[in-house]
């Protein structure tokens, strides 16, 4: 804990020194100056700690539980390797990589986001689709509004929460509405699928559209209702090793662990379907 604090202190002072250098020369290459400063400390602290290797994986928030499980197994099978995860919204993760965040592997919640990373030449090789996920209606366990299908979400007085169209789960919700020929008037358009789940879980909303895996991971407070129109918006999750990976072989091995039989079994358990 203490060394961690010192490391943060060292990194931020280097970033601040960058600021000072910037002030001295008044240049416009601010990002490079501070960025490289921070990176060099990161590698220093790694090399000084041990010959151990660290694998950093950027993955969509919905992958958290199964990926952590697969990561544990990967560490056991590769002595000396530490797997570090950064879970978050796919678009945000790609934005961080574009800003130069150091990582080995990227797994996104849809192909459009991965395409952005490919277009920016961040990816080594071609991404591999490894699972798919579909939308499900989520309602509180007691289902206060008596929802049975997608059409019920348009009933007046029903409080429905969706993802905003700008985020992947919202885009999926929009295409489901289109294919069903209905127009849901949500009381709130949330930033992420976990926010939608939270509003339903707390009982503030009567229903929401989330992924099957979110319902599976949410326990007994909520229940999921399948609906046929979900087929029109199947999200394919791709995974890829990154060009910036310092240990390309290890990155490829991790991708294989996800696409291999054991990894796939863990992902099925979490509710994901085959790609």
């Amino acid at each position: 804990m203490k060394t961690q604090t010192i490391r943060y202190a060292v990194r931020s002072s280097i970033a601040l020194t960058g600021l000072l250098a910037l002030a001295a020369c008044g240049g416009s290459d601010s990002g490079d100056a501070t960025g490289s400063g921070a990176n060099s400390t990161a590698t220093q602290s790694n090399s000084s700690s041990a010959p151990a290797r660290t694998l950093t994986v950027f993955a969509a928030a919905s992958l958290q539980k199964p990926f952590e499980e697969i990561g544990d197994a990967f560490e056991k099978a590769h002595p000396g390797v530490t797997v570090k995860f950064s879970f978050g919204g796919s678009s945000g993760l790609v934005a961080q990589l574009q800003e130069g965040a150091p990582a080995h592997v990227l797994a996104t919640a849809n192909e459009a986001t991965m395409d952005k990373a490919v277009a920016d030449s961040l990816i080594s090789g071609t991404p591999t689709p490894f699972v798919s996920n579909t939308l499900q209606i989520v309602v509180p366990q007691d289902n206060p509004a008596g929802i049975t299908g997608l059409a019920d979400l348009t009933k007046s007085g029903t409080k429905v929460v969706l993802c905003a169209p700008a985020v992947p789960c919202g885009a999926a919700s929009t295409s489901v509405e289109k294919s069903a020929g209905i127009d849901i008037k949500p009381v709130s358009e949330e930033q992420s699928v976990t926010d939608v789940l939270g509003k339903v879980r707390s009982g503030e909303a009567d229903a929401g559209l989330v992924y099957v895996t979110d319902v599976a991971g949410a326990g007994t407070e909520v229940k999921g209702i399948d609906f046929p129109e979900a087929k029109s918006a199947i999200n394919i999750y791709p995974i890829a090793a990154l060009k910036s990976a310092t240990d390309a072989a290890l990155a490829t091995e991790f991708v294989s662990a996800i696409t291999g039989a054991d990894g796939q079994a863990v992902l099925r358990e979490a509710g994901f379907a085959a790609p």
Binding site: V161, P186, V187, S188, E189, E190, Q191, D195, E204
Partner: peptide, 13 residues
Amino acid sequence: TITFAGSLQGTTR
């Protein structure tokens, strides 16, 4: 706001 009120254009956003 985002926790308590939600996010909808013109109403809470």
